[in-house]
Every structure is written in structure tokens, then in C-alpha cells.
């Protein structure tokens, strides 16, 4: 693949437009070949992929498992509670052991920003970031962009609003980096305590006014509000959040008629989004989930292929 030379995917910040397009086009090819499962199923035959999930995750871990299995690889998932990290083993030692067990690639989810980079310096197999603290979640960003492109076509010049807890969100950062690289206009919106103005220096527009955030937006990405983490210190209550920043029927009045709504899940119905809107035809939420498999297949395939050539 001429535009892909990385054996690890640590984030979207450093990816060029051509690299992002290579992943998206590869994912597209997996979707269009849906009927041809047999040929896909041999692409990573004999590979051993280890999911090292040090933080709770269901959909990302399962999506990576399905993606790896669809390519014919063997997958072993190690989760936080079951790993030796909870017994005081350092990430370095865990990583070396995982490598010694014969991993051909490691998919890592970890609460510490930068931990996939640290891991990639320790092991010499591909490392795929499946979410590191508040830093990046590149596979989620890519599947969001993939889904947006299915709906909007080229995202260049399109207005995308990301709404919610931006400060602590890795999904927001990966989407921001990827969308800006592809030429979209990104607005970050939410309570002033969760959307710092410093994001403007990274190329986004920042607003704390819901109407301003939604008018003209071609798509709105909602983020899960993690009240258990930010309660009291960053906003008063879930009901106040829902009143001020939730997507309910009344805000549909000032949204574009054909605007799309995305959410990385799991959604809090009645908090970020009213139930009927989540189920409406504006919602691309389930498309995101199924696209997530093709995008992760593309990531595993491209990174492993580079590794093969080394």
C-alpha cells in the first residue's frame, strides 16, 4: 500500500490526509466485499493479536475482536481485572511478557495518555491505540469520519459540531485532528468548564451556546457525559446538563433539516439525547457500530502488512 508505511497506529494527529484516506478506502473495500468472507478470512491467517484492555470497554474490544477474527487472526483479550497490572506489574513488564507469548500485534486500551507510544517503544510488534486516557481514540475517530463520509460525501468544508465533555474526551481529540486534516470546519461545544478556549489554538471554534453550535451544522457528534467522573466539579447535575446541552425536540427547530447525529456510545438516553431522536432517521449511531468493524479490519490489515515487510 503506497500511502501506508506505519506499523503502529497511535493517533490521528500525525496522520496525513493521504494516510487517513488509505485507511478509509481500505475499510470501504472490506464493506463492499461483505459477501466474500472467505478471501478476507485468510489475510491475517496465523496471526496472533492480543487485546490488552486495561480499562473497561465492551464495544471497542468486541469490534477489534470481530475485526481480527474476520481477517483470520487469532485473538486473545486480556482485561484489566484479569491482568497482572492489578498485581503491581509495570506496563513495561506486562508488554514484554505479552510479546514473549508470541503476539504479532497488540491493541491497547489504557487510562494513561501516551501509554501506546510507551508500549511501541518497548515491543517491536504493531501497537494499535484503542483509547489512551484523554489523549486519542483513533479507530473511533476514523469510524466516525467514515460514517460521516457515507452520509455527506467529502467532508471538506462541511461543518461538524462536537458537543459535550470535550476536556476529558479522547474521541473529541481524534475527531478534531482527523476532521481538520480532511478540511472540515469543527466546532467544539458544551459547558465552559468542559470546553476550554485553548482548543481554538488547535484550529477549532469553541462555543458554549447550543443554538450557535447547532445552527448550520451538517453533523453533530454527541459525547457521553460521564457524570460519575465530572460531577460537582464541572457541572451541577445531569438534569441541568440535559436542559442546557441535551438534544431534545425543541433544538431540532434550529438544526438543519438533513443534519446527522452521531454518538460513540454508550448513550445516556434522556441526558445527551432524547430517546426519540436517538432512534430517528437523523441518527447514524448504529451505522457507526457496524462501520467500526470494517475500519478496524483496515487498521489491523494495514499495520500488520507493514510489519510483514520489515
Amino acid at each position: 500500500m503506497k500511502n501506508w508505511k506505519r506499523s503502529s497506529l497511535l493517533g490521528l494527529e500525525d496522520l496525513s490526509k493521504a494516510e487517513i484516506m488509505t485507511i478509509l478506502e481500505t475499510a470501504e473495500s472490506f464493506i463492499s466485499q461483505k459477501s466474500n468472507r472467505i478471501s478476507e478470512g485468510s489475510l491475517l491467517k496465523g496471526y496472533r493479536i492480543i487485546n490488552l484492555f486495561m480499562e473497561p470497554s465492551t464495544r471497542t474490544r468486541v469490534a477489534f475482536e470481530i475485526a481480527a477474527k474476520s481477517l483470520g487472526a487469532d485473538v486473545i483479550s486480556i482485561t484489566g481485572e484479569a491482568s497482572s497490572l492489578t498485581k503491581g506489574e509495570s506496563l513495561k513488564d506486562t508488554a514484554l511478557n505479552v510479546q514473549a507469548l508470541g503476539a504479532d500485534a497488540i491493541v491497547i486500551r489504557h487510562s494513561s495518555p501516551g501509554s501506546p507510544l510507551l508500549l511501541s517503544k518497548i515491543v517491536d510488534v504493531p501497537v494499535i491505540n484503542a483509547g489512551d486516557g484523554a489523549h486519542e481514540h483513533p479507530s473511533q475517530g476514523l469510524l466516525d469520519i467514515f460514517t460521516l463520509r457515507q452520509k455527506l460525501g467529502d467532508v471538506k468544508g462541511k461543518k461538524v459540531t462536537i458537543l459535550g465533555d470535550i476536556l476529558f474526551s479522547r474521541v473529541a481529540r481524534s475527531n478534531l485532528f482527523g476532521l481538520l486534516t480532511l478540511g472540515a470546519q469543527v466546532t467544539l461545544a458544551g459547558p465552559s468548564t468542559l470546553v476550554p478556549l485553548e482548543f481554538e489554538e488547535l484550529g477549532a471554534k469553541v462555543t458554549h451556546n447550543l443554538q450557535e453550535a447547532l445552527t448550520d451544522a451538517d453533523a453533530v457528534m454527541l459525547l457521553r457525559i460521564q457524570h460519575e467522573r465530572q460531577s460537582a466539579t464541572h457541572f451541577p447535575s445531569l438534569s441541568e446538563y440535559s436542559k442546557m446541552f441535551g438534544l431534545n425536540k425543541s433544538v431540532l427547530d434550529f438544526m438543519k433539516k438533513d443534519a446527522s447525529i452521531l454518538h460513540p456510545g454508550p448513550i445516556n438516553r434522556g441526558v445527551e439525547i432524547e430517546s426519540s431522536i436517538a432512534d430517528s432517521d437523523k441518527s447514524l449511531i448504529l451505522d457507526q457500530v457496524s462501520n467500526g468493524i470494517a475500519v478496524r479490519m483496515a487498521i489491523l490489515y494495514l499495520c500488520s502488512n507493514v510489519r510483514k515487510k520489515i
Binding site: 494527529e13 501516551g114 484523554a134 476550554p196 485553548e198 488547535l202
Partner: peptide, 11 residues
């Protein structure tokens, strides 16, 4: 330090 640089890194 709180800045756009550290925000980008998730720190």
C-alpha cells in the same frame, strides 16, 4: 501545564 499543547496530549 494547562495549555493547548497539553490539551492536545490529553494532559
Amino acid at each position: 501545564h494547562v495549555s493547548s499543547f497539553s490539551l492536545k496530549m490529553g494532559l
